[in-house]
C-alpha cells in the first residue's frame, strides 16, 4: 500500500520534450513509472522517448487515460500548465518548477479550490512510492520499499531521511516532497493525514523548516489523531531572522515560525523531535520498536 501514486498511475510529463523533461522522464521510465506520454503544445502527434506527445493535457487524458501529471514547464508558464491539467481532470499534478511568482500561485490556488485536483509543489522534488512509481526528480535507488511515509519541504533532506530510514533497517512506503515556496498545493498536515489513513504506512517522518505555520498545523492534527509514531525535524535552528535561506518560504518572520517555536509545538503534540538531522533514522527505529512492545 501507498499514498497518491502506485504502479497503476498513468503519468504524463508537461514540458516533455524540453531538456529537464526529457532527462527526468527517462529516469522515471527506468524506475518503472508508467509514463503514458507527454504534452508539448505544437508537437502533438509526434513521439518522444517512444511515447506519444500531445498538444493538450485534455488529449492526453482522453487518448492515453492519464491521471497524474508532472510539470517541468518554465516558471513564467508553469501556472498555466498546472491549471490546464486541473481543467482536463488530472487527479494529481506534481509541479517541479522552481521560481513561479507568488501572484501566479495565488491564482492557481484559487483555481484549484473547486476542482478535484491535488497539487504537490511547486518547487519540490515530487513524490515516490518505493519500488512502484516515481513522479519526481529524486534518486530512486535511495527509496527502498517499506512502511515509513516521509513528508518534507526539502529535496536533498528527503533523500537524507530516506537513506537513514533504509540504513536503520526499514523502508519507504511513499515519500512526498511538498516544496519550500510560500504557497504550495499539498500541506504537511494533508500529507500526514494521508499516511495516517494508509494501511501500508506504520510510521511517519515529517521534515519542516523555518517560516510559515505548516508544521504547527500538522502537529495539532497529529495530537488529535495519534495513531502512528511521527518523527520530526525542523531545519534552520541556526538561521537568523529576516534572512531568506534559499527557499522563498524559508524566512523567519515572527516569533511563531522559528525552528525552536515549531519544535516546541511538535513536542507538545507528541511528535518525536530530532535535534540533529543525523538521528532521524535511528529515532524512527526506536519508535517502531516501542510500538511493537506495547
Amino acid at each position: 500500500m501507498s499514498v497518491l501514486v502506485n504502479k497503476n498511475s498513468k503519468v504524463i510529463v508537461q514540458g516533455f520534450t524540453g531538456s529537464e523533461g526529457t532527462f527526468h522522464a527517462t529516469q522515471m521510465i527506468e524506475y518503472g513509472t508508467n509514463v503514458v506520454g507527454g504534452v508539448t503544445p505544437g508537437k502533438g502527434g509526434t513521439t518522444h522517448l517512444d511515447k506519444p506527445v500531445f498538444n493538450t493535457v485534455a488529449q492526453a487524458v482522453k487518448e492515453a487515460g492519464a491521471n497524474v501529471s508532472i510539470v517541468f514547464v518554465p516558471p513564467a508558464f508553469a501556472a498555466d500548465a498546472i491549471m490546464e491539467a486541473a481543467e482536463a481532470g488530472i487527479a494529481l499534478v506534481v509541479a517541479i518548477t522552481e521560481g513561479i511568482p507568488v501572484k501566479d500561485m495565488i491564482m492557481v490556488k484559487e483555481y484549484l479550490r473547486d476542482k478535484g485536483t491535488r497539487l504537490i509543489g511547486p518547487n519540490c522534488p515530487g513524490i515516490i512510492t518505493a519500488g512502484e512509481c516515481k513522479v519526481g526528480i529524486m534518486p530512486g535507488f535511495v527509496f527502498k520499499p517499506g512502511k515509513i511515509g516521509i513528508v518534507s519541504k526539502s529535496g536533498t533532506l528527503t533523500y537524507e531521511a530516506a537513506d537513514q530510514v533504509v540504513k536503520a533497517g526499514m523502508g519507504i512506503s511513499t515519500a512526498i516532497g511538498i516544496g519550500g515556496d510560500p504557497i504550495i498545493g499539498t500541506t504537511t498536515k494533508e500529507a500526514v493525514e494521508l499516511f495516517m489513513n494508509d494501511p501500508g504506512t506504520e510510521g511517519i517522518v515529517m521534515i519542516g523548516e523555518i517560516g510559515g505555520s505548516l508544521e504547527a498545523e500538522a502537529a495539532r492534527w497529529i495530537k488529535m489523531n495519534p495513531r502512528k509514531p511521527v518523527v520530526g525535524f525542523i531545519a534552520g535552528q541556526t538561521a537568523p531572522p529576516g534572512r531568506r535561506m534559499g527557499h522563498a518560504g524559508a524566512i523567519v518572520g515572527g516569533a511563531d515560525d522559528t525552528a525552536a517555536a515549531k519544535m516546541k509545538i511538535m513536542r507538545e503534540c507528541g511528535i518525536l523531535v530530532c535535534e540533529s538531522p543525523a538521528v532521524i533514522g535511528s529515532t524512527m527505529a526506536e519508535a517502531l520498536k516501542s510500538v511493537k512492545v506495547n
Binding site: S152, K153, S154, G155, T156, L157, T158, E160, G180, I207, E209, I210, F233, A235, G236, Q237, T238, A239, M245, G246, H247, A250, A259, E275, S276, P277, A278
Partner: peptide, 17 residues
C-alpha cells in the same frame, strides 16, 4: 557547502550541535 536549501540549513544545525 551543501546541495539543497533544506539540507544546507540542516548542515548549519549540525555545525552548531
Amino acid at each position: 557547502m551543501v546541495n539543497g536549501a533544506g539540507l544546507a540549513m540542516a548542515t548549519m544545525d549540525i555545525i552548531k550541535l
